[in-house]
Simulated scan of single mutants.
Amino acid sequence: MKHEKTAKIIKELCYKKNVSITKLLDSCGIRKSLIYDLEKRHYTPSAELLEIIADYFNCSVDYLLGRTDNPRINE
């Protein structure tokens, strides 16, 4: 599974929330190479990592994965 779409969604959320990717990753305790790994190395993130990012943005994991256009949880 390729996760370029997940990287794009994370970047868009950072832009919309006016937070840098570095700030997001630092705040969540995630390594700085995550976006590069998603885009270029076809890294598959763990469910735990996706949950951390989803919690940070108050959105669903399905939204981060591009499985829904609705970022809201349980709607």
Rank of each mutant, 00 (worst) to 15 (best):
residue 43 Y to I: 04
residue 12 E to L: 14
residue 31 R to F: 13
residue 33 S to W: 01
residue 8 K to H: 14
residue 72 R to F: 15
residue 57 F to S: 07
residue 43 Y to K: 14
residue 11 K to R: 13
residue 24 L to K: 05
residue 60 S to G: 03
residue 43 Y to T: 04
residue 45 P to S: 01
residue 72 R to M: 12
residue 1 M to S: 15
residue 16 K to Q: 15
residue 23 K to C: 05
residue 40 K to F: 06
residue 9 I to A: 02
residue 21 I to A: 08
residue 64 L to C: 07
residue 38 L to A: 00
residue 70 N to M: 05
residue 1 M to T: 13
residue 66 G to M: 07
residue 64 L to I: 13
residue 48 E to I: 07
residue 44 T to L: 12
residue 39 E to N: 09
residue 73 I to Y: 10
residue 58 N to W: 06
residue 35 I to L: 09
residue 32 K to M: 10
residue 28 C to A: 10
residue 44 T to V: 10
residue 46 S to P: 06
residue 43 Y to W: 11
residue 24 L to Y: 04
residue 10 I to F: 05
residue 65 L to G: 00
residue 43 Y to V: 06
residue 37 D to V: 00
residue 1 M to P: 13
residue 44 T to Y: 06
residue 55 D to H: 13
residue 18 N to T: 06
residue 37 D to E: 14
residue 60 S to Y: 09
residue 49 L to D: 00
residue 40 K to V: 09
residue 12 E to W: 06
residue 19 V to Q: 04
residue 27 S to G: 04
residue 25 L to D: 02
residue 34 L to S: 00
residue 30 I to W: 11
residue 46 S to E: 14
residue 23 K to I: 03
residue 11 K to M: 10
residue 42 H to S: 06
residue 7 A to R: 05
residue 56 Y to I: 03
residue 68 T to K: 08
residue 5 K to G: 02
residue 57 F to Q: 08
residue 35 I to F: 04
residue 53 I to Q: 06
residue 62 D to P: 05
residue 52 I to L: 12
residue 59 C to K: 04
residue 28 C to R: 05
residue 12 E to H: 07
residue 19 V to H: 03
residue 5 K to I: 13
residue 4 E to H: 09
residue 23 K to A: 07
residue 31 R to K: 15
residue 36 Y to I: 04
residue 48 E to T: 05
residue 11 K to D: 07
residue 58 N to K: 14
residue 10 I to M: 08
residue 56 Y to C: 02
residue 31 R to P: 02
residue 27 S to Q: 12
residue 29 G to K: 02
residue 30 I to T: 04
residue 29 G to W: 00
residue 28 C to D: 04
residue 9 I to Q: 05
residue 14 C to M: 08
residue 33 S to G: 01
residue 37 D to M: 12
residue 73 I to A: 07
residue 55 D to L: 14
residue 25 L to H: 00
residue 71 P to G: 00
residue 2 K to A: 11
residue 56 Y to F: 15
residue 48 E to Q: 12
residue 48 E to D: 14
residue 36 Y to L: 08
residue 61 V to M: 13
residue 74 N to H: 10
residue 49 L to E: 03
residue 1 M to E: 15
residue 26 D to C: 08
residue 62 D to M: 14
residue 13 L to Q: 11
residue 1 M to H: 12
residue 42 H to M: 06
